[in-house]
Amino acid sequence: MRFNGISRFLLSCLISGIMACFFIMVPSFLFGSVSNQDKAIETSAKVVDEISIKKQVINDMQNQTKDNISIFSLDDCFKKTYYISQNGVKMYKKIGDESSLIKCLDRDSEIVAYEEKDGYIYCEDNFSVKGWVKKDNNNLKAMPLGLSNYIIDVDLTKQIINIYGNGNVVRKNIACSTGILNNADTETPVGIFKVKKKLVYPNGLKLNNNDGTKETVMYPVQFFSNYLIHSVPIDETHHNNKVEQEENKVEKSKLGKPASHGCVRVSMDDAKWIYNNTPQNAEVYIHY
């Protein structure tokens, strides 16, 4: 009887131990699985979001194309973006005049056209050189082939910037102010560009606008020719023999609507973030 009692006691201890292990381990296993599943779903959603924004922007541009070599064309838009199809495409000072050759353009270079005449387009390249290029399929193509993992998406209709990088939504709904449509001097060019360089001007970059006005901006990031992403204009004041800089309140209040001379303006904080975090050759998608 004593032996049977001890056996029952040991058996009950064993069963209790097994049950305790079961209740400890199973919840951990279950919750761990759910957590990993959630992470997989979240990661997948981020990747799809980046891919979809690329496709959506490109489709929007293609749907507004009027010919097979202009990436974007709109009746109210003076500036049209093209891409060079091969190395050695010639730019002339005068239409069809070989002796007036200005330079030869490289494959995949962006050019922005301002005028069309006699089968040529008058355009500007990334180095602010302007001249005539023959408009045909041998010289021009509609869409650049490469896609970056980092995208600065500028929506001219909504006047916002969304930034995507490596499958993540990095920043969203940044209020911006772009150029005024239907004005050749102020339009922001539309198309796919790349970040060329971050200009180094610690005390601000002085800009001379086409209308004769001047402004000082901070954190300039060049994406084509003299077109930049930068802060709203700043005011400089002298206080205790020091120069202090602050955002121009009037110009900052215009964020969210077209008001610039062609560049893309954002707040000082957003300009600083873009300047410090945008990698070289990041793609800049500008579209309506």
Rank of each mutant, 00 (worst) to 15 (best):
H239K: 15
V217Q: 02
P202V: 02
E187M: 04
V26E: 14
T216G: 04
V217P: 03
A184E: 14
Q62E: 12
L10R: 14
K254R: 13
K194I: 06
V169W: 01
N63M: 11
V47Q: 11
Y219T: 03
E215M: 09
R8L: 06
Y275F: 15
Q280T: 13
L156I: 07
T178C: 14
G179A: 05
T278Q: 07
R265P: 08
H239N: 15
G131R: 10
N277H: 15
P144M: 06
K103C: 05
E244T: 11
T278V: 11
F29Y: 11
V89S: 05
M91R: 01
T186W: 07
K103V: 08
L74V: 09
C123P: 01
I58H: 10
L140G: 02
S16D: 11
I229W: 02
A271I: 00
L207A: 02
H238V: 14
K194E: 10
H238A: 12
C13M: 15
G204Q: 01
E50S: 12
E98M: 10
N162P: 05
G167R: 02
D97S: 14
E236Y: 06
I95L: 08
P220F: 03
Q64N: 13
G165S: 12
N203D: 12
A259C: 09
N139L: 07
H239S: 15
V48G: 04
P27D: 09
K196R: 12
K135V: 04
N138F: 11
L181R: 14
G204N: 07
V264R: 05
V217L: 00
K94P: 00
E283S: 15
K134W: 09
F223A: 03
K93S: 13
Q64F: 01
N166V: 02
N162S: 13
P279I: 00
K79D: 00
K117N: 15
A271R: 01
F127A: 12
A40E: 11
Q159I: 00
N63V: 03
K90F: 06
Y275E: 07
L11A: 01
S109R: 07
S253T: 04
D49N: 14
G165Y: 00
E116V: 08
M25S: 15
I41T: 10
L11F: 08
I71G: 06
I15L: 12
